[in-house]
Design a protein around this nucleic acid. Structure first.
Lengths: 214, 214
DNA sequence: CACATTCGACCGAGCGCTCGTTCAGTTATC
DNA sequence: GATAACTGAACGAGCGCTCGGTCGAATGTG
């Protein structure tokens, strides 16, 4: 995992302390943003919930948008790590893919509030920060691409190479969909039902006509 | 199309005039929201772009959030109408579905800025208005459900009934995905390539094993 | 050890400003 | 001339951010 995060300047010298305080800030902000959104959250609220004075907060960031960037970066890194943790087992590409999808959907379920933050507040990020965040998003998609490619190589999955990237995007998007359409999907399916249905739909597109195989 | 829109009170009596002015307001706001988002757009900007004084604006709405609601409602109604227009031909369910998907994706492509508004500003809507907007979203999904059901009935599509609703959601979400992931998908696919790839993936899940047919 | 000095994290009152909203007054219409 | 439609100056709540200042710990000094 290449961590090319853009670094935000701080007035405080002690780097260890910077990490600690920013962690407090991020945790407070994630909760507030998930609850009321970026715009309706005030810097004073972030400070109070972090246990810092408003002046101190600004020793660790330069603008409110810096907080949003820190939050997005944290969420993405966290999501990616959870994904990676669930993907280390040695299996065929096909089995790994199924497990990765299950894991990803489960993470989307757990973290739905955070996922929503990223989607709804992206527009508020300054341009340069936006580029970093989008790159992170692409990176997560690429994990799935790699698994599918492995499945093609070891013969456990079949599909034309031109569709691999698209398939990876579809998986990610169908996962995120569980986060931001839960208001309606939840009325008809549990997470498990949703996951298994989607896996079976997706895999139908990644194998030769079943009638032909054994 | 059941138009159950919540109606926003206006101080102006003449209903014809209300329609006219609100149309000006909506058109101005759509452009501004797409450009800078709801929060960063000021009521004064909306008024100026509508060709109204700020005071006049408030004769036709009661709060800034009213404008957001009017905009969401307009976009949804517009999207739905475009969809319906493209779906009237008499064909098998399968052919209708393919056409409807093409039409929907094309609309998502044309209207990507507006689609983004709905997704990114939903959280800013007061609760009651939110319910109306989400209902509209569900309504659009139901169009696809009905087409698929027709395809099952006339035998041109095969799938278990329990997956129909999910399949309809998938179609809608994959269409919306073209709007809000164009920053990366556009690097690899044109709209036409994207559409045809997705149609072929989706249809694989809606037919018996191809080896069996003809 | 006692004391003076330096340092830097921490603080919050307050500045400058923007914004959504109102309302007293003007203009247009019949 | 009465009513409806329009207007923009004025309001005041609330915002992001700054800055002069406090204080405890670290360091220097005799």
């Amino acid at each position: 995992m290449t961590n090319k995060s853009k670094s935000i300047p701080s007035l405080v010298k002690d780097q260890e302390l910077v990490r600690l305080r920013r962690d407090q800030i991020i945790r407070a902000a994630v909760e507030l943003f998930a609850d009321k959104g970026f715009h309706k959250t005030t810097t004073r609220e972030i400070a109070r919930k972090s246990g810092l004075g408003i002046g101190t907060l600004y020793e660790y960031i330069q603008s409110k948008e810096d907080v949003l960037y820190l939050v997005c970066d944290f969420i993405h890194t966290d999501l990616e790590q959870q994904l990676i943790d669930e993907m280390t087992h040695e299996q065929t590409g096909r089995e790994t893919l199924i497990n990765a999808i299950r894991a990803f959907f489960r993470v989307m379920d757990n973290e739905q509030d955070r996922v929503l933050i990223i989607y709804q507040e992206l527009k508020s990020l300054p341009n340069e920060m936006l580029r970093y965040v989008l790159a992170k998003e692409e990176e997560i998609t690429r994990h799935f691409e790699r698994i599918i490619e492995r499945g093609i190589t070891d013969g456990s999955l079949q599909m034309e190479p031109g569709s691999v990237k698209l398939m990876a995007h579809n998986i990610v998007v169908l996962g995120e969909m569980w986060s931001f359409r839960r208001w309606v999907l939840g009325k008809h399916y549990s997470l498990e039902e949703y996951t298994e249905h989607q896996i079976s739909l997706l895999l139908q597109s990644m194998q030769q006509h079943p009638a032909v195989r054994k």
